[in-house]
Design a protein around this nucleic acid. Structure first.
Lengths: 343, 343
DNA sequence: ATGAAAGCGCTAACAC
DNA sequence: GTGTTAGCGCTTTCAT
């Protein structure tokens, strides 16, 4: 591997000059520049990025800390982040925290030692105090789905509260008379906001009741169990708003197991808009978050902060949208082609 | 941030001594060691990993190059690799190549400049020659699903040929009389081996025919289209072996759209064993690859190569296994509970 | 057992 | 315009 010294020697100049043409800063004569370029070419010289990082403290690397890449919400987010990182010639380190506090902390320490330039947190165990403490280390950082409104950190999130209302409104509009909610894991702001949206929307109905809500921990199995429990308590419910798509799919499984038809007897609406919602039968109505856009936005904010072109910290709230599919199609709606004849 | 110099000064020793206790190599007196440790503690010293990398060329970072993390096969693989990397105190850089040759090349160059210590290739555009060339740069590397048997590189893969036979055997065993195959993207060895397994297994049947095979490009939509085409050509086919689960799901969608019942009229078997196969209706029979284990194996091999404890390059072939589910349940098999009564 | 000093490869004053 | 040189923070000979 050729070094900057080799290039300098071959071009008959000093390393400073080579460095200047490399970084396109400082004055350098046309001719000498050409000579340097030729030398670089001839030696197939590639700058050593580690040395460069040591000298100027910029590693060209950011990190993404998320609970588990295996959770279907995150691959698209990760993809978006990597895409914008690549467009900035940056590289991204992937960290699975399993929502373990200790893991997140040890990651952050390790990453800091590597001169990582910024972190995107899509994980949820750090307290607001932790985040603030981290911020004091001057490490650029943007977080997803956090309840920080104090300007410590840029936040990207969706309007979960409104999204929940959208879901319930939709279920009401197709004629549901008793709508249950499967809520997400309690500490998370996304879960709490969706629950609040649901409650506020059904509050005025005489059938509304606290025990129409059951936690499902954001997992498929949790959604399945919650559905069974809800039906035990309320055999007459005819609509389910699940706090995320995974739980909605669990609900679908539970209902199928019980021989209850979806959407005829019970309609289901999920939340998130992950790709899985298109492969269930029936396909799942969901309140879609613009997942890719969230990731891209977070990454762009991070780079803005890294480059210092970001004035103050803000909360960026993106819009959700209801995607209506078969799991909420009642009579009068689109009819599925069934047994359209063959053979 | 405290440096090694600060520690040395506070402990009243030289930086060399501090370095020795840090790396636990070379002789150092018990007492001095204690003093150094105390100083480290007091200053909350953390070694600068970039400086260390520059000095000894080891970055504590590996890279994973895959086509697209959004493809449901890869998150679990990535998770496995990150898990074993973390257990080695390594960090992993995620790269989406979209199977673009230029992108892979530019990644490899960039990564080399960062003193990455090894690469896991789960992407498929590099030719054997490219790989060999890369290997000559002495960069530890393991590849997935490659047809390299020449000892240039460690390879992890599954027995795709056998898996395909397993699938066809199963379809035959449940009574299928005419089995079609939706093949994967032509250049990939996985696709070719599965096709070969299918062909070899049905060769002896009088209904076997080249036009019972249709490419589906490993995508859901491709699987859907291929199914429509196959049914046009062979309205009487009653079994489909898809080259991967995504295409099997596409087949499921096509059949549903046509009002053809699965598994009663047509049975379907996929390949890969991704999580999605459990959320379709009916759930999908599939030839499962041990995805997590493949990732973990690849990572362990890479670390063995990095540490120089790996004698020679080999091909590690893991076993696939048939997971039978509802998409291939014929009369006489398990009966699904339907309309088991409620309300 | 410990220290001095020469790298690792690059950047950025500062001098000319 | 270009060169000299002092870092960046750590590792590792080579003396002692």
């Amino acid at each position: 591997m050729a070094t900057i010294k080799d290039v300098a020697r071959l071009a008959g100049v000093s390393v400073a000059t080579v460095s200047r043409v490399l970084n396109k800063n400082g004055y350098v004569n046309q001719e000498t520049e050409l000579r340097v370029l030729a030398a670089i070419d001839q030696l197939e010289y590639q700058p050593n990025l580690v040395a460069r990082t040591l000298a100027n403290k910029r590693s060209g690397t950011i990190a993404l800390i998320l609970p588990d890449i295996t959770n279907p919400f995150f691959p698209e987010l990760a993809r978006a982040i990597e895409d914008v990182a690549r467009s900035h010639q940056y590289t991204v380190i992937l960290c699975n925290s399993d929502d373990q506090f200790a893991r997140e902390i040890s990651y952050v320490e390790l990453l800091a030692q590597k001169y990582i330039e910024g972190i995107i947190f899509a994980s949820n165990t750090l307290s607001t105090e932790d985040i603030i403490r981290l911020k004091n280390q001057k490490l650029p950082m943007v977080v997803l789905d956090r309840a920080l409104d104090y300007g410590y950190c840029n936040v990207v999130r969706c309007n979960n509260y409104l999204g929940a209302k959208l879901a319930v409104d939709h279920l009401l509009s197709i004629g549901c008379q008793k709508i249950a909610h499967i809520s997400g894991a309690a500490p998370f702001i996304t879960a709490m906001e969706r629950l609040r949206g649901y409650e506020d929307r059904i509050r005025t109905y005489e059938w509304s009741s606290p025990d129409l809500t059951e936690p499902g921990h954001f997992t498929l199995e949790g959604g399945r169990q919650a559905t069974l429990e809800l039906l035990r308590r309320h055999p007459d419910l005819d609509g389910i708003f699940a706090g995320n798509d995974l739980m909605a799919i669990g609900a679908l499984k539970a209902l199928r197991q019980l021989g209850i038809e979806v959407p005829r007897q019970v309609s289901i609406c999920g939340f998130d808009g992950i790709a899985l919602t298109e492969i269930t039968e029936p396909e799942l109505t969901t309140v879609a978050q613009p997942i890719y856009e969230m990731g891209a936005t977070a990454a762009k904010l991070l780079f803005a902060e890294i480059q210092g072109t970001l004035e103050n910290k803000q909360v960026y709230e993106l819009d959700v949208s209801l995607i209506q599919r078969a799991s909420t199609e009642r009579s009068g709606d689109v009819v599925e082609s069934k047994d359209s004849g063959r053979r």
